[in-house]
Design a protein around this nucleic acid. Structure first.
Length: 647
RNA sequence: GCCAGCGUAGCUCAGCAGGUAGAGCAACUGACUUGUAAUCAGUGGGUCGCAGGUUCGAUUCCUGUCGCUGGCUCCA
């Protein structure tokens, strides 16, 4: 028998007979490895331990401590769940069951699950794990595979097999009475599965295609250690506590009601205060950076959107037209066309460029009801929007300035957990986009170049572009773990053509400008939703609806408390007095629950000294200080935009 | 929009398997005059999302509808 050389992770080399299983190789290295190995990486590919060594190879054994090893366990766990389902609900059809972050899911058809089914399925899974069935890989011919799954009437598996490339190695995995089409790899046996929990049931379209059958998906998590599972569940619970919908209600930020309409939020006084601070901040900053803020109406003629092309491409997301006099009007879903018209209102010289037109503009978009979520997804939203009209040679500098502005703003708000995404058009579905291949190629490579020159890391996302051009998105995570776009910068060579924009160049001839669309704060709604979750409702002093509450120790000091609050307001702060005849402990508790940054306790000792006793949210009693000293401190904290609690 | 679940007082939630509803907080009234996360007592408040149906009788079962939640699709 031929000998094969095995190079291990530590660089050492060993020789084994061809045909030796990797399980045996692991055993020859050590009993502990034999016990803990769940799979093996052979020349970079993850394999089952039962597979055999056929040629010289670089070999690394995987345990549950390796992310790839953990994924193998999660994948096998998905099969165990499917097996349990097939036992409990005969006739259920199986679609796909991939590994996802923290766990896995499996899509089923021809049976509707309810939440009560989950514990039953878990119980059955535990039996399957206890039975410790070996998981056996089997290579089968395409014909055999088709025959097998046709006989079971597993239409999804048949479809998958039919679409596999001609040279694909088709494998099935068996465990006990259960068999599934699967590429693998898997654990050696079901008994190796550790800790898991079935989480939720959801609908999901077959192959993610809304025109196809809706399947029932069961989501689950799985971990190597009980403590990891518990920690994950605790984390999810904590995330639920910081859900902006919960905090938004508790803190009086916004409300929604069906009487007002779905997805149409009302900003309550506290929310409006926060929003106003942000609006002032961003408008001031933009004006300093050479943006010109404008106001344009919420209604526009359909004609305007026919010129822009929105009517053709975006029509289904717009509220239908209203016929008045001899005009057809729509609620605007975006204000780019208005800004195009502002550009066109004068003859522009190359010396005028870049021209940066900005607006806090309210838009209305018809979002599908199922996608609405608190302030994160709404149907009426105010964008921190701007359109930069520039010469082609100015694109890169303007783009760079926008990215720097984004970074500046994120720093001021203490936003650190985000990533950049370059969104390109979907090369397989180009009809969704404006037709101009050359433009797309140019714009996409230009964005990439600019990001590379900035030295910023990014992910590339085909299919995420706007219909008129590629974009840079800044992605953040919501409390529920979903990615959302917070900021966006989009290159547009299209609208300038549609509106026939021009500037007079140095040569005295007309030229076409380029437009950069950009939203830094994005929408006020999503931004505030994000901040609520980011700060767990504890807004930094510069943003907080109430920066300081003055709490009187007893009625006798109500006058002094009012006086202190008024002095704070005169100094430009948002302050109020709590002079109710309640115990000081109760007032303090309420101020803490409302996450007010500073509570100022005033009684005899403070009144006598013109002082306040300062309690800071998250830190506790800072002791007594003269009111003037507190004002100086608060001013400094506000100016520096200091975060209230460390993230 | 699609699939599933949920919808009880202002808020958070009880209410086993059908017999016209309860707690805590909040609100209101009174007492207490208070020193760093809840003072005590009392009072009011719900056509149990809405509309049908089954039943002697429905918050409880069924159907429809509206809304919310999770996910899919979509997306700032």
């Amino acid at each position: 028998m031929a000998q094969c050389k095995v190079t291990l992770k530590d660089g050492s080399e060993r020789w084994y007979e061809q045909g030796t299983t990797f399980a045996d190789i692991a055993a020859s290295i050590g009993p502990r490895l034999a016990r803990e190995a769940v799979a093996v990486k052979v020349n970079g590919e993850v394999w089952d331990l039962a597979r055999t060594l056929e040629q010289d190879a670089a070999v690394a054994f995987l345990t549950l401590d390796d992310p790839e090893g953990l994924d193998v366990m999660r994948h096998t766990c998905a099969h165990v769940m499917a097996q349990a389902v097939s036992r409990l609900f005969p006739g259920v059809k199986f679609a796909i069951g991939p590994v996802i972050e923290h766990g896995f899911y499996y899509d089923f058809a021809d049976h509707t699950f309810t939440p009560e089914d989950l514990p039953r399925i878990e119980e059955e899974m535990k039996k399957i794990i206890a039975a410790d069935y070996p998981v056996v890989r089997e290579v089968v011919s395409r014909e055999a595979a088709l025959a097998m799954f046709r006989e079971r009437e597993d239409r999804f598996k048949v479809e998958i097999i039919e679409e596999l490339p001609a040279d694909a190695v088709i494998t099935i995995y068996r465990q006990g009475e259960f068999v599934d089409l699967c590429r693998g790899p898997h654990l050696p046996s079901t008994g190796r599965i550790k800790h898991f929990k079935l989480m939720s049931i959801a609908g999901a379209y077959w192959r993610g295609d809304a025109s196809r059958e809706m399947l029932t998906r069961i989501y689950a998590v799985a971990f190597a250690k009980k403590s990891d599972l518990d920690a994950h569940l605790a984390y999810l619970e904590e995330q639920r506590q910081r859900d902006h919908r919960r905090l938004g209600k508790e803190l009086g930020i916004f409300m929604l009601s069906k009487e007002v309409g779905q997805g149409l939020p009302l900003w309550l006084p506290n929310g409006a205060k926060v929003r106003r601070v942000i609006e002032r901040y961003i408008v001031d900053l933009e004006e300093r950076l050479g943006y010109h803020h404008v106001y344009t109406p919420h209604l526009a003629s359909v004609e305007l959107y026919k010129i822009s092309g929105h009517w053709e491409h975006y029509h289904e997301d717009m509220y239908p037209p209203m016929q008045m006099d001899n005009e057809e009007l729509v609620l605007r879903p975006m204000n780019c066309p208005h800004h195009m018209m502002i550009y066109k209102s004068e003859l522009r010289s190359y010396r005028d460029l870049p021209l940066r037109i900005a607006e806090l503009g309210t838009m209305h978009r018809y979002e599908m009801s199922g996608t609405l979520a608190g302030l994160q997804r709404v149907r009426a939203m105010t964008l921190n929007d701007a359109h930069i009209f520039c010469r082609p040679d100015q694109i890169q500098e303007e783009f760079t300035r926008v990215v720097q502005l984004i970074q500046r703003v994120y720093k001021d708000f203490g936003i650190t957990d985000y990533y950049y995404r370059l969104s390109y058009r979907d090369p397989n579905d180009t009809h969704k986009y404006v037709q101009n291949d050359e433009m797309w190629e140019l714009a996409q490579s230009m964005l990439k170049q600019a990001m590379d020159d900035l030295g910023l890391a990014y992910v590339e996302a085909p299919g995420e572009a706007a219909f008129y051009g590629p974009k840079l998105d800044v992605q953040v995570k919501t409390a529920l773990g979903k990615d959302e776009t917070l900021s966006t910068v989009q290159l547009d060579f299209h609208l300038p053509n549609r509106f026939e924009l021009e500037f007079i160049g140095e040569d005295g001839k007309p030229h076409r400008p380029v437009v950069i669309h950009r939203g830094v704060v994005g929408t006020m709604e999503r931004f505030v939703a994000f901040l609520l979750e980011q700060y767990k409702g504890a807004f930094p002093a510069w943003l907080a609806p109430v920066q300081a509450r003055v709490a009187s120790v007893s009625d006798e000091f109500a006058g002094y408390a009012e006086q202190v609050a008024e002095q704070l307001r005169d100094a430009g702060f948002r302050a109020e007095a709590d002079v109710r005849p309640e115990k000081i402990g109760y007032k303090i508790r309420q101020a803490q629950v409302q996450k007010i940054p500073y509570t100022l306790v005033v009684g005899e000792r403070e009144r006598a000294n013109g002082a306040v006793s300062v309690r800071k949210y998250g830190e506790g009693d800072l002791g007594q200080m003269p009111l003037s000293a507190f004002i100086a401190m608060l001013r400094d904290v506000v100016d520096r935009k200091e975060l209230l609690v460390k993230p």
